[in-house]
Design a binder for these strands. Sequence first.
DNA 1: CAAGAGTTTGACCAAATGGTCAGGATCACG
DNA 2: CGTGATCCTGACCATTTGGTCAAACTCTTG
Lengths: 205, 205
Amino acid sequence: MNMTRPKTRIQRKNTSAILEAALDVFSQHGFRGTTLDQIAQAAGLSKPNLLYYFASKEAIHTALLTGLMETWLAPLRELDPEGNPVDEIVAYVLRKLEMARDYPRESRLFANEIVQGAPNILDQIRGPLRDLVNDKADLIESWILTGKLASVDPHHLIFSIWSTTQHYADFDVQIRGILKASDDAHFEDAAQFLSTLYRRALTPS
Amino acid sequence: MNMTRPKTRIQRKNTSAILEAALDVFSQHGFRGTTLDQIAQAAGLSKPNLLYYFASKEAIHTALLTGLMETWLAPLRELDPEGNPVDEIVAYVLRKLEMARDYPRESRLFANEIVQGAPNILDQIRGPLRDLVNDKADLIESWILTGKLASVDPHHLIFSIWSTTQHYADFDVQIRGILKASDDAHFEDAAQFLSTLYRRALTPS
DNA sequence: CAAGAGTTTGACCAAATGGTCAGGATCACG
DNA sequence: CGTGATCCTGACCATTTGGTCAAACTCTTG
């Protein structure tokens, strides 16, 4: 059965309901910790009906991950060679932070996958992701060489941006536990802090 | 059966073999992704024998987590009120980075637990961890007020240090995939980068 | 070395879980 | 409105897995 492009109205509705439900459950319990019954219930379908739309549990997981990859890379892709370097990078940081706030499930799904060795997306990491990062690292390097940015290792700069921002999604429980935060207000403080951090470190002296 | 303090020689040997094996497997596959058989095989014991030493799979997991918590907090505890503020914080960053390099399994076990909502250590987060962080945040705040440190949000500073350093353990696969790194040489670059980042951002102008 | 404490295991069990399938219900469309 | 395609489900299956237990083995110690 060809599942790449849902054809009928019902197919569209159900596949998206399944993926939505699966994102919820997978991001909370990981791949092995998730059961088909959980997904089925969350999607409001029967288990055999799930398997009518997706060949297997793994197929659902894979569909989510591949769909996610592009979304995840997009903000980095927007780094503009023409813009003001420091502003561009700070804007990237804030974009990433917004994603952590608005799409925490996606971030955690990704984190779960990577922490456990990225068995399903290692190719994409070593391929498209690596290429994009190297490309942007070159851009950052050129900004440094023309004196528009303080000197830092571009790759590790990117890693630090990923980690600091995604941390607010992936370690959400820990952060809320420490701040006693029940809403998203602390994201404002985080934005403030990260802007300051990177602006100070990257503005050429 | 009282398992808090192994009594016999054999008990000491086997419980530590089990915990060592379990750390390996749990950190790689998460709680649900790990089977008792895997742990048993890695420890060189039979499955019933595992359960002679630990009441259940969860008991092994809990033993690991509680044992880990203290180790994880130790570096933060060492922040010295008497030292030079910027140096103290940079030293803390480097200590944390070394831990990510030398104890990646512990870091991933922790990450797995937190990402999935910290079902087993939420109390410790909201208790001892929270207290320690607040204590050190106060210290940092006092450094800022006396002009020895540039002004930043102390809590988010700590979060950023956790995330940037642990990232090298938790997202190891991704980092290696991008850097094409097969050894630990990139930890040197990371140390360099992070020292620079925090030194620039925290040194009072 | 006797004997009890401590250790180990093969065989077994119940529950959970991913997946199958035949047949029935429903929908789209000529 | 009829009919073929699409959609849905109850019942079922095989496997995996956490955990039990009685019996056997081994170690320690008086």
